[in-house]
């Protein structure tokens, strides 16, 4: 309980300081909204030209797009601190975290809160709502709970990727931007149904980087659609749980990294 109220305290302080540059904040939130809006417009333009994508309609793709967009934007909003972790190491600020009676991962999370990602979140949410109304999905409480679970699973998945990227910094100090492939690249790939991709690509994003579990499989279940590749329905139902599992696994790696922390300037 103390952990949560303290976290909210940190978040409040962060939001206050971001509000100091109010104009810039509003412009930025708005521009984020536009970036992602035009992003989705591109998807729509492709459908205007080609009409279908291997038995998937525009609104089904929009449904996927909205789901992954919400997860990623929220993960960036909450997990910004992990994203800027290399900076914390270089400036020695991570030392300050180690002298506090709080968990390190917790403090890195509390270090930043990027409210401006609300722009992207609301855009993705908007696309998602329009899509689900076009598709005529009836939101029963069970379905709604499942959706929330899938979103949380997605947030955990992306945060897990951030954690891997941050942990590598314990050894390299510089950030290795290869992880962008899986975060930004993952959102790009996850906007479209996994079934349209080649065999090797699909399996990579299912079993190596478990993106499909937090996006594609839960979406299939919500849409009541069978996987054209014939994967069992059970994958859809357990899908969201893979997110927290993935995050816990990366946190084991994180703890290992903290033990190897060398600090700067002995």
């Amino acid at each position: 309980m103390h952990a949560l109220s303290l976290y909210l305290h940190f978040v409040r302080v962060r939001i206050q300081s971001q509000m100091e540059y109010r104009f810039s904040f509003l412009m930025d939130t708005f521009s984020h909204f536009c970036v992602t809006f035009l992003d989705f417009t591109s998807v729509a333009l492709l459908f205007a030209r080609f009409h279908t994508l291997k038995h998937w309609t525009l609104w089904e793709v929009a449904f996927l797009y909205g789901m992954i967009g919400i997860s990623f934007a929220l993960a960036e909003m909450i997990g910004r601190g992990i994203d800027v972790f290399p900076r914390l190491v270089v400036r020695g600020e991570f030392d300050n975290m180690l002298i506090r009676p709080l968990g390190t991962f917790y403090q890195v999370l509390a270090y930043q809160f990027q409210l401006r990602r609300l722009g992207r979140t609301s855009q993705a949410l908007l696309v998602f709502c329009i899509a689900s109304s076009h598709l005529g999905i009836v939101w029963t409480p069970v379905k709604l709970l499942f959706l929330i679970a899938a979103i949380i699973g997605g947030i955990c998945f992306f945060m897990g990727l951030f954690v891997i990227g941050a942990t590598i910094c314990f050894w390299t100090v510089q950030s290795i931007e290869v992880l962008n492939i899986f975060t930004y690249g993952g959102t790009e790939a996850g906007q479209y149904p996994m079934s349209i991709y080649r065999y090797w690509f699909r399996h990579f994003f299912t079993f190596v980087v478990p993106l499909a579990f937090v996006n594609y499989f839960p979406a299939l279940s919500l849409l009541g659609k069978a996987d054209p590749n014939g994967s069992p329905m059970i994958l859809s139902q357990i899908g969201p749980a893979i997110g927290p599992a993935f995050l816990s696994l990366t946190l084991v790696f994180w703890r290992f990294g903290v033990k190897h922390y060398q600090s700067t300037g002995h």
Binding site: V13, S17, R91, G92, E93, D95, N96, L98, I99, R100, P101, L102, G103, G265
Partner: peptide, 23 residues
């Protein structure tokens, strides 16, 4: 026992602040 230890010690580094830089 990093957290338990941290609760009972105070630390100051002359080279840089342990406070929040922009607050």
């Amino acid at each position: 026992q990093r957290k338990e230890n941290a609760r009972r010690i105070g630390v100051v580094f002359g080279q840089r602040t342990h406070l929040w830089f922009d607050l």
